[in-house]
Write a protein that binds this DNA or RNA. Structure first.
Lengths: 120, 120
DNA sequence: CAGGATCCTTTACGATACTG
DNA sequence: CAGTATCGTAAAGGATCCTG
């Protein structure tokens, strides 16, 4: 007979794995966290604003990632009626629910750096 | 003397972005979360155990991902002195600190599924 | 300003076969 | 059992040019 998992972990591990895959798939790629992080702090930003904030990204990638994020309702895109058109990107309420995820990733990453500096 | 950033633009955000990139880079690829999640629950597992637990992975990818994770001290590898050699993979204390990160990713993913089912 | 279209390089990943 | 070696495909990403 097989050893059974102990107390503190939920037995639904397959469901959890699937959930993690979902999340990672939605946030896949090199830039999505940057974009979301920037929009969570920065309220409304235009395409060029984002280009300036996100170091190294090109128009193709930015455009594509923004579309992905919009499709998943994490950000919203609003075309303004200006002389040359401008666009305002912002985080949605739903996208803002990613804040805890981002915080965990960030603080683990910071702890990681510290542990590397302290040797080990 | 060094210029100091002023109020509104927190200089901390760049550090946080870097931290997120660090974390994602360490956990990059299609399988690392699966492996870590499996080892967090499963205590000590052999190579073939992991193959069975992680649906769809091949020997090449498993081998490579395990090496990556070991290099970053997230898992440990112990060669046992048995007839055909066996290996025990397990999560390190340090690797276990990823649990909160994994939990956030999982619960966000679950909430995402629910929100999709409920239409929107 | 906000992007789409094209081309090209690089990396990730997978299938299969083989070894101590 | 625990991998390595080799090969081939697909996806990701970047550079550049072009348009309304």
């Amino acid at each position: 007979m097989k050893k059974k998992a102990i107390v503190n972990d939920t037995p639904v591990c397959h469901v959890r794995m699937q959930a993690i895959s979902d999340t990672m798939s939605i946030l896949s790629g090199k830039w999505k966290f940057h974009i979301i992080g920037t929009l969570i702090e920065g309220s409304k930003l235009g395409f060029m604003d984002l280009m300036r904030e996100i170091d190294g990204i090109g128009t193709k990638m930015l455009s594509k990632e923004l579309q992905d994020l919009e499709m998943n309702h994490l950000i919203s895109r609003k075309v303004m009626d200006t002389k040359p058109i401008t666009v305002e990107y912002s985080i949605t309420e739903y996208g803002a629910t990613l804040a805890p995820v981002i915080n965990e990733l960030a603080s683990w990453g910071i702890a990681y750096r510290n542990s590397v500096y302290e040797g080990k």
